[in-house]
Every structure is written in structure tokens, then in C-alpha cells.
């Protein structure tokens, strides 16, 4: 099992760097994983997105459609891409501790 080491901490991750056990997520995880996704400093906007993804995932077990994410957080599509340069699937989901989305991504 690959291990992601950061700030003296170790996380078990899958081969794409997504958290292996989504249940151990806390806010520190988001801060620690931000370093790998080109996110510098988590703003209130980032937290809004991360918390929404997190709560949706806990409720439904999958990542939401980008439509839902934008509608619920009030951000425009391009704002999401500005905040998370690797995009909602690979960037934002990783910070929120979701498993890697399935399919061609």
C-alpha cells in the first residue's frame, strides 16, 4: 500500500494518491493533501466546496455531479477550476478524502 508522507504524517493512499480510508478524514487531511494538488492556502471558498463534497459523499457514497456542487456552493464552473487546478474530480475530491472517481478520469 503506498504511503503519502507530509508534515511528518503518513497517510495510506491508493496508487493515484487518494486517501485509502475515507473515514479517517479530518480537516488536516485537506490541508495536507492540498500541497499535492496545487492549492495554496485553503480559503473559505475551498472549505465550502470540500465540506459539501464530504457531506454528499457520506450521504450517497459517490461524488456529486459538478452541477450539484456549483448549485449548492454558489460557485461558477470556472471558479471551481481556479480554486482546484486539477479539477473537481481529481483535485477537490482528493482533498475531501473521497475515493478516486470511477471511469475515464
Amino acid at each position: 500500500m503506498p504511503v503519502f508522507e507530509v508534515h511528518g504524517k503518513q497517510y495510506e493512499v491508493d496508487e493515484d494518491g487518494f486517501l485509502e480510508n475515507p473515514e479517517i478524514w479530518n480537516e488536516d487531511v485537506a490541508r495536507d493533501f492540498a500541497t499535492t494538488e496545487g492549492v495554496e492556502g485553503l480559503t473559505d471558498g475551498h472549505w465550502k466546496v470540500i465540506n459539501y463534497l464530504r457531506s454528499y459523499y457520506l450521504q450517497y457514497g459517490i461524488a456529486p455531479m459538478i452541477r450539484k456542487l456549483c448549485k449548492e456552493t454558489g460557485f461558477k464552473l470556472n471558479e471551481i477550476y481556479d480554486m482546484f487546478p486539477s479539477g473537481p474530480a481529481k483535485g477537490a475530491c482528493k482533498l475531501a478524502g473521497l475515493p478516486k472517481p470511477t471511469g475515464c478520469v
Binding site: M65, I66, L77, G87, P101
Partner: peptide, 11 residues
């Protein structure tokens, strides 16, 4: 289309 467009990047 590819569903990736609808789900994650409809731009």
C-alpha cells in the same frame, strides 16, 4: 458525448 463531460467538466 462522454459522461465525463456531464459529470465533471461540462464546459
Amino acid at each position: 458525448i462522454n459522461p465525463r463531460e456531464a459529470k465533471y467538466d461540462p464546459r
